[in-house]
């Protein structure tokens, strides 16, 4: 098994996905099976092969520094689950 429950827990935390303890074993099994399958990638000799992050890249695209109006505050906040004082409201974030 390439991934154990502790790793699943760690990855879930990185991804900010609440995973009930009861699901950890199933996740480990499913992810393990997929990882075992994709381990075939190790069979290929890719020494000196550069990576391709995008097949048909387009370098140098940029736009002019011209501001334009976006959304109003009420449009911006229209879909927010909670808002107050013109801001998106979230449970308290402790700084520091």
């Amino acid at each position: 098994m390439p991934i154990d429950e502790a790793q699943v827990r760690h990855v879930a935390r990185l991804a900010r996905l609440a995973v009930p303890d009861s699901d950890l074993a199933r996740f480990a099994a499913e992810l393990g099976a997929i990882l075992e399958h994709v381990a075939r990638l190790q069979e290929l000799d890719v020494r000196d092969v550069p990576p391709t992050a995008a097949a048909l890249g387009r370098p140098g695209v940029a736009r002019d520094d011209e501001p334009s109006a976006g959304l109003t505050a009420s449009e911006a906040l229209a879909g927010a689950p909670a808002s107050a004082a013109g801001m998106f409201q979230v449970p308290r974030v402790v700084e520091g």
């Binding site: 609440a18 879909g79 927010a80 689950p81 998106f88 974030v93």
Partner: peptide, 18 residues
Amino acid sequence: VRYGRRAAGAADYVEMFG
């Protein structure tokens, strides 16, 4: 935070996100 669904009753943002 900005749109869509939010789990109710979370104590802090970490729990809310998760």
